[in-house]
Computed example of a mutant assay.
Amino acid sequence: MKKLLLALALSTAALLPAASALAADLDVPPPPTEELRQSTYDWTGLYVGAWVGATCIDGTLTDNAGPTDWEMSGCGWKGGALAGYNHQFNNFVLGLEADWGTTGNIATNEEAGGDFAFSMDHIATFRGRWGVAFDDTLLFATGGVAYARGDLDGINGAATPDHIKGDHWGWTVGGGVEHAVTDNLRLRLDYLFTRFKGDDYTKACCDVSVHDFDDHEVRLGAIWAF
Protein backbone atom coordinates (compact mmCIF):
# COMPACT_ATOMS: atom_id res chain seq x y z
CA MET A 1 0.00 0.00 0.00
CA LYS A 2 2.79 2.41 0.86
CA LYS A 3 4.48 1.62 -2.46
CA LEU A 4 1.23 2.43 -4.33
CA LEU A 5 0.79 5.78 -2.57
CA LEU A 6 4.41 6.66 -3.24
CA ALA A 7 3.98 5.85 -6.96
CA LEU A 8 0.86 8.07 -7.20
CA ALA A 9 2.64 10.97 -5.50
CA LEU A 10 5.59 10.71 -7.86
CA SER A 11 3.28 10.58 -10.91
CA THR A 12 1.36 13.68 -9.78
CA ALA A 13 4.56 15.62 -9.21
CA ALA A 14 5.77 14.71 -12.70
CA LEU A 15 2.52 15.95 -14.31
CA LEU A 16 2.42 19.37 -12.56
CA PRO A 17 4.93 21.18 -14.89
CA ALA A 18 3.06 19.99 -17.99
CA ALA A 19 -0.31 21.15 -16.57
CA SER A 20 1.13 24.57 -15.73
CA ALA A 21 2.52 24.95 -19.23
CA LEU A 22 -0.86 24.01 -20.76
CA ALA A 23 -2.69 26.56 -18.58
CA ALA A 24 -0.24 29.26 -19.61
CA ASP A 25 -0.87 28.46 -23.29
CA LEU A 26 -4.63 28.90 -22.77
CA ASP A 27 -4.30 32.44 -21.25
CA VAL A 28 -5.37 35.25 -23.67
CA PRO A 29 -3.16 38.32 -23.26
CA PRO A 30 -5.02 41.65 -22.66
CA PRO A 31 -4.98 44.23 -25.48
CA PRO A 32 -2.17 46.80 -25.34
CA THR A 33 -3.30 49.73 -23.23
CA GLU A 34 -1.73 52.25 -25.63
CA GLU A 35 -4.18 51.19 -28.38
CA LEU A 36 -7.30 51.82 -26.30
CA ARG A 37 -9.22 55.07 -27.12
CA GLN A 38 -10.23 57.26 -24.21
CA SER A 39 -13.81 56.58 -23.14
CA THR A 40 -14.68 60.30 -22.87
CA TYR A 41 -13.74 63.01 -25.37
CA ASP A 42 -12.29 66.18 -23.82
CA TRP A 43 -13.92 69.36 -25.21
CA THR A 44 -11.71 71.76 -23.25
CA GLY A 45 -9.32 73.91 -25.29
CA LEU A 46 -8.78 76.35 -28.13
CA TYR A 47 -9.98 75.71 -31.69
CA VAL A 48 -10.09 77.33 -35.15
CA GLY A 49 -12.10 76.48 -38.21
CA ALA A 50 -13.84 77.45 -41.44
CA TRP A 51 -17.48 77.34 -42.53
CA VAL A 52 -19.77 77.66 -45.54
CA GLY A 53 -23.52 77.97 -45.63
CA ALA A 54 -26.75 79.31 -47.03
CA THR A 55 -28.35 82.55 -45.83
CA CYS A 56 -31.74 84.16 -46.35
CA ILE A 57 -32.80 87.69 -45.37
CA ASP A 58 -36.24 89.26 -45.05
CA GLY A 59 -36.53 93.06 -45.13
CA THR A 60 -37.42 96.23 -47.02
CA LEU A 61 -35.68 99.42 -48.15
CA THR A 62 -36.93 102.90 -49.04
CA ASP A 63 -35.61 105.03 -51.87
CA ASN A 64 -36.11 108.42 -50.20
CA ALA A 65 -36.07 110.26 -53.55
CA GLY A 66 -39.60 108.96 -54.20
CA PRO A 67 -40.14 107.96 -51.59
CA THR A 68 -40.65 104.38 -52.79
CA ASP A 69 -40.53 101.16 -50.76
CA TRP A 70 -38.96 98.02 -52.19
CA GLU A 71 -38.83 94.47 -50.87
CA MET A 72 -35.32 93.36 -49.87
CA SER A 73 -35.61 89.60 -49.46
CA GLY A 74 -33.78 86.62 -50.89
CA CYS A 75 -31.22 83.87 -50.33
CA GLY A 76 -27.54 83.42 -51.11
CA TRP A 77 -24.32 81.90 -49.81
CA LYS A 78 -21.92 82.73 -46.97
CA GLY A 79 -18.45 81.59 -46.01
CA GLY A 80 -15.83 82.46 -43.43
CA ALA A 81 -13.61 81.52 -40.50
CA LEU A 82 -14.11 81.04 -36.75
CA ALA A 83 -12.14 80.66 -33.52
CA GLY A 84 -13.09 79.92 -29.92
CA TYR A 85 -12.43 78.30 -26.59
CA ASN A 86 -14.38 75.62 -24.67
CA HIS A 87 -14.23 74.49 -21.06
CA GLN A 88 -15.87 71.24 -19.98
CA PHE A 89 -17.43 70.65 -16.56
CA ASN A 90 -18.45 66.98 -16.32
CA ASN A 91 -20.88 66.67 -19.26
CA PHE A 92 -21.48 70.42 -19.62
CA VAL A 93 -19.47 72.62 -21.99
CA LEU A 94 -19.20 76.42 -21.84
CA GLY A 95 -17.33 78.54 -24.36
CA LEU A 96 -16.79 81.76 -26.29
CA GLU A 97 -16.63 81.99 -30.07
CA ALA A 98 -16.04 84.69 -32.71
CA ASP A 99 -16.54 84.34 -36.45
CA TRP A 100 -16.17 86.40 -39.61
CA GLY A 101 -17.60 85.88 -43.07
CA THR A 102 -18.68 87.38 -46.36
CA THR A 103 -21.60 86.77 -48.74
CA GLY A 104 -22.55 86.84 -52.37
CA ASN A 105 -25.68 88.67 -53.52
CA ILE A 106 -28.51 87.76 -51.18
CA ALA A 107 -31.46 90.00 -52.09
CA THR A 108 -32.04 91.16 -55.65
CA ASN A 109 -34.81 93.19 -57.28
CA GLU A 110 -35.21 93.70 -61.02
CA GLU A 111 -38.32 95.89 -60.99
CA ALA A 112 -38.21 99.16 -62.96
CA GLY A 113 -37.00 101.91 -60.66
CA GLY A 114 -35.81 99.45 -58.04
CA ASP A 115 -33.12 97.41 -59.74
CA PHE A 116 -30.62 96.51 -57.01
CA ALA A 117 -28.58 93.78 -55.35
CA PHE A 118 -27.78 93.56 -51.64
CA SER A 119 -24.86 91.65 -50.12
CA MET A 120 -22.66 91.83 -47.02
CA ASP A 121 -18.93 92.48 -47.45
CA HIS A 122 -18.30 91.60 -43.82
CA ILE A 123 -20.43 89.81 -41.25
CA ALA A 124 -19.13 88.97 -37.77
CA THR A 125 -20.52 87.62 -34.51
CA PHE A 126 -19.21 87.27 -30.96
CA ARG A 127 -21.15 84.65 -29.02
CA GLY A 128 -21.29 82.56 -25.89
CA ARG A 129 -21.88 78.82 -26.23
CA TRP A 130 -23.30 76.32 -23.76
CA GLY A 131 -24.03 72.66 -24.39
CA VAL A 132 -24.16 69.04 -23.25
CA ALA A 133 -21.51 66.54 -24.35
CA PHE A 134 -22.33 62.91 -25.13
CA ASP A 135 -18.75 61.66 -25.30
CA ASP A 136 -17.55 62.87 -28.73
CA THR A 137 -20.82 64.58 -29.74
CA LEU A 138 -21.88 68.02 -28.47
CA LEU A 139 -25.35 69.55 -28.60
CA PHE A 140 -25.16 73.30 -28.03
CA ALA A 141 -27.00 76.62 -27.97
CA THR A 142 -25.39 79.98 -28.69
CA GLY A 143 -26.13 83.69 -28.55
CA GLY A 144 -24.43 87.08 -28.73
CA VAL A 145 -23.91 90.23 -30.81
CA ALA A 146 -23.51 90.65 -34.56
CA TYR A 147 -22.21 93.21 -37.08
CA ALA A 148 -22.54 93.44 -40.88
CA ARG A 149 -21.13 95.80 -43.50
CA GLY A 150 -23.81 95.93 -46.17
CA ASP A 151 -23.34 96.61 -49.86
CA LEU A 152 -26.21 98.04 -51.95
CA ASP A 153 -25.51 98.06 -55.67
CA GLY A 154 -27.61 99.56 -58.44
CA ILE A 155 -30.69 101.15 -56.83
CA ASN A 156 -32.07 103.65 -59.34
CA GLY A 157 -32.30 107.31 -58.31
CA ALA A 158 -30.98 110.45 -59.98
CA ALA A 159 -28.22 108.10 -61.21
CA THR A 160 -27.22 104.49 -60.68
CA PRO A 161 -24.79 104.38 -57.72
CA ASP A 162 -22.08 101.77 -57.54
CA HIS A 163 -21.89 99.87 -54.25
CA ILE A 164 -23.20 102.13 -51.45
CA LYS A 165 -22.09 100.91 -48.00
CA GLY A 166 -23.93 100.78 -44.67
CA ASP A 167 -23.34 99.39 -41.16
CA HIS A 168 -25.73 97.11 -39.29
CA TRP A 169 -25.54 96.02 -35.65
CA GLY A 170 -27.71 93.34 -34.12
CA TRP A 171 -28.10 90.26 -31.94
CA THR A 172 -27.97 86.58 -32.82
CA VAL A 173 -29.14 83.25 -31.34
CA GLY A 174 -28.97 79.68 -32.56
CA GLY A 175 -27.76 76.16 -31.92
CA GLY A 176 -26.34 73.05 -33.49
CA VAL A 177 -24.49 69.76 -33.19
CA GLU A 178 -20.73 69.13 -33.29
CA HIS A 179 -18.98 65.77 -33.61
CA ALA A 180 -15.34 64.82 -33.05
CA VAL A 181 -14.13 62.71 -35.97
CA THR A 182 -10.67 62.43 -34.40
CA ASP A 183 -9.07 63.96 -31.31
CA ASN A 184 -8.37 67.12 -33.33
CA LEU A 185 -10.83 67.22 -36.24
CA ARG A 186 -14.47 68.10 -35.58
CA LEU A 187 -17.44 68.69 -37.91
CA ARG A 188 -20.34 71.01 -37.10
CA LEU A 189 -23.82 71.78 -38.41
CA ASP A 190 -25.50 74.87 -36.93
CA TYR A 191 -28.24 77.47 -37.42
CA LEU A 192 -28.15 81.18 -36.54
CA PHE A 193 -30.97 83.73 -36.49
CA THR A 194 -29.79 87.36 -36.52
CA ARG A 195 -31.82 90.55 -36.18
CA PHE A 196 -29.99 93.51 -37.76
CA LYS A 197 -30.78 97.19 -37.22
CA GLY A 198 -31.32 99.34 -40.30
CA ASP A 199 -29.02 102.06 -41.66
CA ASP A 200 -29.04 104.89 -44.22
CA TYR A 201 -27.14 104.31 -47.46
CA THR A 202 -26.26 107.72 -48.88
CA LYS A 203 -24.24 108.99 -51.80
CA ALA A 204 -24.17 112.25 -53.78
CA CYS A 205 -26.85 110.88 -56.11
CA CYS A 206 -29.04 108.93 -53.72
CA ASP A 207 -30.51 108.52 -50.27
CA VAL A 208 -31.72 105.02 -49.39
CA SER A 209 -32.87 103.65 -46.01
CA VAL A 210 -32.41 99.93 -45.38
CA HIS A 211 -34.80 99.00 -42.58
CA ASP A 212 -34.35 96.41 -39.81
CA PHE A 213 -34.08 92.93 -41.32
CA ASP A 214 -33.84 89.28 -40.29
CA ASP A 215 -31.07 86.92 -41.35
CA HIS A 216 -31.43 83.12 -41.25
CA GLU A 217 -28.39 80.98 -41.94
CA VAL A 218 -27.48 77.28 -41.93
CA ARG A 219 -23.75 76.50 -41.84
CA LEU A 220 -21.44 73.49 -42.14
CA GLY A 221 -18.08 73.89 -40.42
CA ALA A 222 -14.78 72.03 -40.09
CA ILE A 223 -12.85 72.68 -36.86
CA TRP A 224 -9.32 71.92 -35.69
CA ALA A 225 -8.98 71.59 -31.90
CA PHE A 226 -5.68 72.15 -30.05
Rank of each mutant, 00 (worst) to 15 (best):
K165G: 07
F126L: 15
G221R: 04
G166V: 04
L139H: 05
K2M: 09
L185A: 14
G76T: 00
F140V: 04
R186S: 15
C205I: 13
N91R: 09
N91H: 11
T125A: 09
P29Q: 09
A23Q: 13
K2I: 08
I57S: 01
K78R: 15
L189I: 14
K3P: 08
A98L: 12
G221V: 00
F193T: 00
S209E: 10
D153K: 10
G84R: 01
Y147P: 01
V28R: 09
V210S: 01
N91I: 02
W51I: 01
V28I: 11
H179E: 06
P30W: 01
E35H: 10
G80N: 02
A124H: 03
P67Y: 02
G101F: 00
N86I: 04
T40S: 11
L96M: 08
W77P: 02
V210K: 00
I155Q: 09
A9F: 14
W171C: 05
W43Y: 00
A112E: 14
Y147H: 06
T142I: 04
H216W: 05
T182L: 08
N90L: 12
P32Q: 12
A54C: 05
D27N: 13
D190H: 14
D58R: 06
H179Y: 13
P29C: 04
L46Y: 15
T125W: 00
V210H: 00
S73V: 02
Y191S: 06
D27F: 11
A13D: 08
D183G: 12
L96A: 13
T40D: 12
A159P: 03
G150S: 05
L187F: 13
K197V: 06
A124P: 03
P29I: 03
R37D: 14
L189T: 09
V177R: 04
T108E: 12
C75L: 00
V52L: 13
K2E: 14
R188E: 14
C206P: 04
W70S: 12
H211P: 01
R37A: 14
D183S: 11
R127E: 12
D215L: 15
L192D: 15
W100F: 15
A124F: 07
T68C: 07
V181D: 03
N109V: 06
P67N: 07
A146Q: 02
A107S: 04
C206R: 08
L220D: 06
G221Q: 02
R219Y: 03
E178V: 05
T68N: 10
L15Q: 13
Y201D: 03
L82N: 06
L220N: 02
N64Y: 08
T202N: 12
L36F: 10
T182W: 08
G114E: 02
L4R: 10
G66A: 14
D58G: 07
L10R: 10
H179P: 02
E71A: 11
N90A: 15
L46H: 08
G84Y: 01
V210P: 00
G76A: 00
T182H: 07
A81D: 09
G59N: 03
V208Y: 05
A112S: 12
D212F: 00
V181E: 06
L94K: 03
L4Q: 14
L46D: 08
